[in-house]
Design a protein around this nucleic acid. Structure first.
Lengths: 126, 126
DNA sequence: TATATTATTGCAAATGATTTGCAATATGTC
DNA sequence: GACATATTGCAAATCATTTGCAATAATATA
């Protein structure tokens, strides 16, 4: 009997490399462009889906109808500042335990994750 | 010379009524369904666009690829708890000045707005 | 009140992101 | 290296949203 498992293939390596290259959330199309079309968009989508499932990337949405993905470096979750003018993104980390505790007290939901994004103007665009 | 202006038409009244009926963010399709197809989807999209522009509704995304809209009651902005199982949504308000101040200090972005959403399981689905 | 002027609507078709089916290919195991 | 299975690329489908345009509705003015 042959073992089954997830394979670390050439396309997946490239997509991982691409994600690693960016330090901000990127769309499937951006990865595709960065990889010069070497990998089919479909495979990029499927790989991202997989990476999301095994929890090595995080998905974000900035409101323009495309999903963006980002490697979850050292398992630390962070938030984003998005420039409404040029689209530039800055990462931001913060202690948010207080906030989370507050919400957990207020609500009877069992909270698993949260998303916090800020929108405004980057230094260049102000 | 004829004056120009925004018209408060029948379709717009209905869409407003629909938004008012829901106490959570709803998609264009949900509004359309609620209004029993009386108003064309296109017009719903255009009206939502307009309402967003004149700042009477807020747009949210819960990560399933649809935009949702919600009336901005008494100008108070709030956040959401989304059940990952049944899709139910609970509104939540909180004092977040501390948080905002912190971010403003940490970053050189000029922050205009932010979105904060929580995901987990509602009481029924736990 | 009728008419003129401009805004808005509905329909059909276009677009853009993402997904699905499937045969061809690459991987890892024995 | 041969085999079993996972993965890929391509074409086509799907889903949300947008656009063009001629028909219609709303409002100001005669």
């Amino acid at each position: 009997m042959t073992k089954i498992g997830i394979r670390y293939t050439k396309p997946r390596k490239l997509i991982f490399k691409a994600l690693n290259h960016f330090s901000k959330p990127v769309s499937a199309a951006e990865i595709n462009f960065y990889l010069k079309n070497k990998i089919d968009l479909t495979s990029i989508y499927r790989t991202l889906e997989l990476m999301k499932k095994i929890n090595i990337i995080e998905e974000t949405e900035f409101g323009d109808g495309k999903k963006r993905y980002e490697l979850m470096k050292n398992n630390k979750h962070h938030h984003h500042l998005v420039c409404e003018n040029c689209g530039d993104v800055e990462n931001i980390e913060m202690k948010e335990d207080n906030l989370l505790d507050k919400v957990k007290n207020k609500s009877s939901f069992l909270i698993k994750e949260h998303k916090l994004e800020f929108f405004g103007l980057c230094p260049n665009c102000q």
